[in-house]
Amino acid sequence: MPKSFSARAIVPVALAITGFVVVCCLLLYSVMKRDMTRDAMQHAANLADTIVKSTRYAMLKSDRETLGNIIRNVGDQQGVEHVRIFNKKGTVMFSAASDELNHLVDKKEAGCIGCHSGPKPLTTLGKMEQARQFKNRKGVKVLAITAPIYNEPSCYTAPCHYHNESQKVLGTLDIGLSQEPLRKTLITLGERMAVFTLMILILTIGGVAALLRRSVFVPLQLLRSYAAELRGGSIDTPPPSLDGELKEVADTLHQTSRQLRESRSQRKQGDLPGS
């Protein structure tokens, strides 16, 4: 058990403040990380929608060359890890990576299983459910969005090529964005929060310690030295200049020591004649 008064006063305060500030910062970091990831997902979903809308005319015209060109150009963009369109059977029809073309996609992979877990695949998903996060073969963390390409009236009534009206989904666009910029931003944010937390802790604990030292520990030390001097026999030492309750204690000590000295001298005087 800490014996000194200062340790007993500062330990619980330091523990309480440090713990609470750390808990709040960790929760704040977690909330901000979630918000930023959600924003990144929203951004990826918007990008996927933009690509689907940009390629719509080429699809209607069955212009495979233009469509392939658009997909390759999008795939060349910085931060885009992959972009592909696969048909209802899961065969990659267009991709920025030429080695993926005509390959079948595994329906059990993350991003596919969301719709294909049941006996009948789902045809609609929310924006957040369309997203998945994973590490690709290059070891880059990727945030991918799968956007279904729905069968619209203009698709199944177009003269150029014909789809059955009952077919709801014609294919899927899959786009993967690198999470490296988000990761870097989160690291910077974490570092700044850690520095900020440390500064708050130093200021708070330092402030409390300084106030305690000035108002309690130093006057107490003076009182202790004064009591030690009285115990050593230096009764004439004046009490230290203190305020409040500690002044009362110092005065009481001073008075008691004077009374003790007087009673001793009286006893000595009383003893002398008789001796």
Binding site: P12, L15, A16, G19, F20, V23, L26, L27, S30
Partner: peptide, 17 residues
């Protein structure tokens, strides 16, 4: 995964005190 350390820090603080 994201909130483990927050609960852990809260536990250490409350139980420590």
């Amino acid at each position: 995964d994201d909130n483990f350390w927050a609960v852990f820090a809260a536990g250490l603080t409350v139980l420590g005190l």
